[in-house]
Design a protein around this nucleic acid. Structure first.
Lengths: 300, 300
DNA sequence: CCATATCATACTCGTAGAGTATGGAGATTG
DNA sequence: CAATCTCCATACTCTACGAGTATGATATGG
């Protein structure tokens, strides 16, 4: 049996007349008659009673008409859904995220993606840098977000934005809390609370690198796991710290944020990473959103 | 698109390998490759990623696999159900019944039919003789049961059984209540309660005919609508009445039933009636049950 | 009783699906 | 590192089945 049989059968059943059905199907009457006979033969069931005025359905025919219509609509739906899936409009996207990325850039991207792709289910996985790389290789996630990504042979990464760094100091009593903006060189004078502890090269390494480029080595008083812990220590008087602009949305009592004078120097990148060979339309659609976002950031 | 495409697609998706799938489908590999390409072309969607070890589904392919399996099983079910409908094993049978027929013969027939055709929904319509004929012509029912059926041009009737008649008399005080069995000639001596009033030729007419054959005309004291009313009148002393054997299962206070001596003469037929041109398998199956029943009755 | 409408059948034609042979790309192994 | 193996893809041929045209059979209705 064939979908053609169903289509023809439905037409004949609805028209109750082979000739009219043939007209509607844009074929001639004899092949239609034959196809219907063939269908009846194959099922071993009489579907129509032939009358001088046309045909009418038997009880078995009535049943089969219901089934045929049902199948036809299911096929149509399947095709539609698959097409949408092929365009990246339907399906699932597994994303790996990290600490401070979730505070600003990533939500903006997700928002844009959901606006244009409402039927893609986005699943977020909180994973560290190495966790993301492993998850990508195992195809547990399709794309990850991170900073300071080392190049990988089988993975591609793409810059999303460069965020300016901000100084976080204790609001009361710290000398730098008076200045605005701050010179990067000031970092040489105060103990630094650094994070995160893992996933090298990481945010700390980047800060140290920036300091070296300015000719000094910072004094790292504490290394903690994440930005929130770091800021808590700063509020407790253990030193100062640096955060990407995203993190300045975190308001903690006792913490104030200060920009740097040389804003174009004191930056940190945020990138995405995905399997180089992954051509899945959902990923491509998401990358398109990322690129559009980057373009727009560059204009501002 | 074609059911073949689905079948081929499912095979390839399950085997994750075109060659093996082709083997399983008993075709060679190249046409299978082409059919898969064709399907992808038609959907405008890449369903498989070709790898050196075979093929693997894309996300859209995974979705389509679900849909395809679903459609396949629906098609299989549709075919199965339609075949069963074509064998009269599935569907609906509308039956017209009348008063005393429901007491014995018809339930037995329905019981047998339901045992062999459990998925046919039997719908009972209480209809008089003319109501049945009308309902048959309008296809509201498929078969009717009745007695004393006059031949109809477009309807066929078939005898189901001949039931012996029984005399119903008042248990106390009536002379005939002493006799067992009774001679048919006794009917000449007592007023007769007759039924039903409508649907001629009917049960009364048949009784009168039998009496005439024996050379007398009965004295009809009352004509009522149905057997129960008739028996109630007999219990009330308005006369005697005759009922088919089926009706003797009706026990009423004050009523006793007596057989006739010439049992083979004092009978009434019960028949079924259906559209002559109706070839529906459910009707044919039901007629087969009726015929088997009649054969069995004849043997006893 | 003839005209008409309907489905069924006979025959021909073209396309689409299946087979065979072969190519090309990437992985495996000695 | 080269030979081999294992896949899928392509080219070409053949066949079968679906579609078209012409015509028949049958029943209805004016």
């Amino acid at each position: 049996m064939d979908l053609r049989h169903l289509k023809y059968f439905i037409a004949v059943a609805e028209e109750q007349n082979v000739g009219r059905a043939a007209l509607r199907l844009h074929i001639s009457q004899p092949p239609l008659t034959r196809q219907i006979h063939q269908l009846e033969e194959e099922l071993g069931v009489q579907l129509f009673i032939r009358t001088p005025r046309g045909v009418e359905l038997t009880q078995a025919g009535e049943l089969f008409l219901d089934e045929a219509r049902n199948i036809r609509s299911l096929v149509e739906q399947a095709v539609e859904r698959t097409k949408r899936a092929g365009q990246g409009k339907l399906g699932r996207l597994d994303i790996g995220i990290f600490g401070t990325g979730i505070l600003d850039v990533i939500p903006k991207l997700l928002q844009r993606f959901r606006d244009t792709h409402p039927d893609v289910k986005v699943v977020i996985h909180a994973l560290g840098k190495n966790g993301q790389i492993e998850a990508l290789r195992q195809k547990r996630i399709t794309i990850g977000f991170n900073r300071m990504l080392a190049p990988q042979p089988d993975l591609s990464s793409e810059l999303i934005a460069q965020e300016p760094l901000f100084l976080a100091v204790n609001a009361e009593g710290h000398p730098l809390s008076e200045q605005q903006p701050v010179s990067f060189m000031e970092l040489a004078k105060y103990p630094l609370v650094a994070f995160p502890a893992s996933g090298r090269p990481n945010f700390v390494d980047h800060i140290v690198e920036l300091c070296r480029a300015r000719g000094f080595t910072p004094e790292i008083s504490q290394i903690v796991g994440d930005a929130v812990t770091g800021l808590a220590l700063v509020a407790g008087g253990f030193g100062i710290t640096l955060v990407p602009k995203s993190a300045t949305t975190l308001k903690l009592p006792g913490i104030i944020y200060r920009p740097f004078m040389d804003a174009s120097f004191a930056t940190v990148d945020i990138s995405c990473i995905y399997r180089s060979e992954d051509q899945s339309p959902i990923l491509q659609a998401f990358l398109a959103v990322i690129r559009a976002f980057r373009e727009q950031q560059a204009e501002e």
